[in-house]
Design a protein around this nucleic acid. Structure first.
Lengths: 224, 224
DNA sequence: ACATCAAATGGACATCGTGTCCGGTTGATA
DNA sequence: TATCAACCGGACACGATGTCCATTTGATGT
């Protein structure tokens, strides 16, 4: 295996596994994390080209058949250059999604209710669903591309969503939030959204409202 | 494309798409559906070998890296022979799962409550979850193999589950059963179960009880 | 401005899985 | 036992993968 770098030049660890434990943003959040040595100009230029080209490709054709070769060609870059940073197309899609996901994470942690702190568990869960559906609506191709690797669960992002939902379910008095968290997140799988939105032709609004209904049912606090 | 036959010798239509419309068992259900001409003995022998070998391989290594070549070699059969019946490993796993799934479908349609007709929507939904988790516990490798193609939604089986859950949600007075059905089914994705059961180490019991809790919350009938 | 050298690049290679074709084989039927 | 359709599997062409390494590029220090 060649040495492989993440976009900021630091050793790459397949997103942020630590975020699985704590509801915090990934370590590469924002503009902190200065790399040890400055990234060379040509490297930066190519990185931008790659991300731009990959985004275009994912939007165009079915994510599952975007190959490393395609991306390299579209970016005007050699394949080995691509492999230097990303092990597969899925990780590139993940990188493109990361930014959008972090924005939602920020709003959950420090934004206004009901997405941010302060509202009832049921309302926060409903707002969370709405925000995630909005993300899926706008970036479904990236979400689909990111999961073609198979495990959308290994990413730091999933750990964040999971921790958030687990806390909400705990507050709502669910009997086993640890087990219920993944079930509550499952409807947000990109494949599910594609089925509902495009194969079945449901509107974003119906899907969102349905999840909000589910959120209120699940998040409702009551006597035991 | 070579002409391709299903295990009974009839033209294959990627499982049973019609079942998406009606809550009925697939057309190849049971032992009916006599093929036009008797299947040749060598063909039958090879078909058995293939299924047996494939089942063994899926149980052994990660489903995503079981190739047609592997299966052909393990079955002692040429690759072209394999392609004659199945387009990819996922369809073989689907074929192996079909039988088990049909058994549950039978119980849903004509079995005793609460899985079969007669119980309340909430109880039926809970029983459905329990039955499906039981299936996943026993045949997770096949379920994972069946979805490596990407669309576990294109199968007739999914159509059946969907129709069933949609009816239950309708009876329970859900505001939009059409949209809620897929959300309610999402926690049964094989990948989700693998995460909960093996990555997180939850017991089958906890997962089942959590889904039963969810079923009661979602299926509960109440004033509008 | 220029020399230096590590970082970065991309062409090329070996390998593997795919999907199909077609000549040879097998077994059901008369 | 003869006939012929169905079946079989070796072989081919292709596309994608992941890595190697000779060459180029740019950041740094004098």
């Amino acid at each position: 295996m060649t040495d492989r770098l993440d976009p900021s030049g630091a050793p790459m660890t397949r997103n942020d596994v630590a975020a699985r434990e704590l509801p915090l943003l990934g370590p590469a959040a924002g503009a902190g994390e200065r790399p040890r040595v400055r990234e060379r100009a040509d490297a930066a230029r190519n990185r931008a080209r790659v991300l731009e080209a990959a985004g275009r490709l994912f939007a165009t054709r079915d994510a599952r058949q975007v190959t490393m070769e395609d991306i390299a060609r579209a970016a005007g870059v050699g394949r080995a250059t691509l492999y230097r940073r990303y092990p597969d197309p899925a990780s590139i899609a993940t990188a493109l999604l990361d930014e959008h996901e972090r924005r939602i994470q920020e709003r959950i942690l420090r934004g206004a209710p009901p997405l941010g702190p302060g509202a009832s568990p049921a309302d926060r869960l409903a707002a969370f669903y709405a925000a995630m559906i909005d993300l899926l609506e706008r970036h479904l191709h990236l979400a689909l591309g990111a999961e073609t690797g198979g495990d959308r669960f290994g990413t730091g992002a999933y750990g964040f969503w999971r921790a958030h939902v687990r806390v909400l379910l705990t507050q709502a008095g669910a009997p086993d939030p640890e087990a219920a968290a993944d079930a509550a997140l499952a409807p947000l799988a990109p494949e599910v959204y594609r089925l509902q939105r495009h194969t079945l032709g449901l509107s974003q609004r119906r899907i969102t409202e349905s999840l909000e209904w589910m959120a209120r049912r699940l998040g409702e606090e009551r006597e035991r």
